[in-house]
Amino acid sequence: MDGTEAGVPEIELSAGVIEYEDTGGEGPVIVFLHGLTIDSTVWRKVVPGMAGEYRCVLPTLPLGSHRRPMRPGADLSLRGLALLVGEFLERLDLREVTLVLNDWGGAQVLVSEGRAERVGRLVLTACEAFDNYPPGVPGRAVATAAKIPGGLWLTMRALRLRATRRAPGGWGWMSKRPIPDEIMDGWFRPAMTNPAIRRDLAAYARSTPPKAVLLAWAERMRAFDRPVLVVWAAEDRLMPREHGPRLAALFPDARLVEIGDSYTLIPEDRPEALVASLRDFLTA
Rank of each mutant, 00 (worst) to 15 (best):
R246L: 00
D103Q: 08
T41S: 15
Y133G: 05
P149G: 10
A158G: 11
M50I: 11
P28L: 07
V111W: 03
M1H: 14
G244Y: 00
L89W: 04
R237K: 15
K147R: 15
S65Q: 04
L83D: 12
M174Q: 09
W232Y: 07
V97I: 12
Y54D: 10
A126I: 00
A15G: 06
P72T: 07
M239F: 01
T208G: 08
A233F: 00
A218P: 00
G3W: 00
R237N: 10
E87P: 07
H66G: 06
A276F: 08
E53K: 10
G169I: 12
T23G: 03
L152E: 12
E219R: 02
T23V: 06
L265Q: 04
K211W: 02
L159F: 06
S277W: 01
E242N: 01
T60A: 08
L161D: 14
L214A: 10
W173Y: 13
L124P: 01
G25L: 04
A129M: 03
A126F: 01
L215A: 07
L122E: 04
A167G: 10
V29S: 07
P209S: 09
V97R: 03
A196T: 02
F32E: 11
S65R: 07
R121G: 05
A212L: 11
D22V: 11
G3Y: 04
E235M: 03
W104V: 13
L215P: 04
G73E: 11
D103K: 02
A126R: 01
L94R: 05
G24E: 09
Y20V: 14
R165D: 07
T4V: 09
K147H: 13
W43G: 14
A146S: 14
A129N: 04
F224L: 02
E87T: 10
S175C: 06
L101G: 03
E12C: 09
K45N: 15
A234K: 10
L256A: 04
R162H: 13
F251G: 03
R177P: 00
T164V: 13
R157Y: 08
D75R: 11
L63P: 12
R71F: 09
R199T: 05
A116I: 01
I179L: 10
D236S: 08
T4Y: 13
I148F: 05
R44Q: 14
W173Q: 09
R71I: 08
L265E: 01
E182G: 03
V42N: 11
V231I: 11
R189D: 13
I259Q: 06
V100F: 03
T155A: 15
E272V: 11
G120V: 11
H34I: 13
R198K: 12
R71S: 14
D261Y: 08
A216Y: 00
M221Y: 00
L159P: 07
I18D: 13
G16M: 05
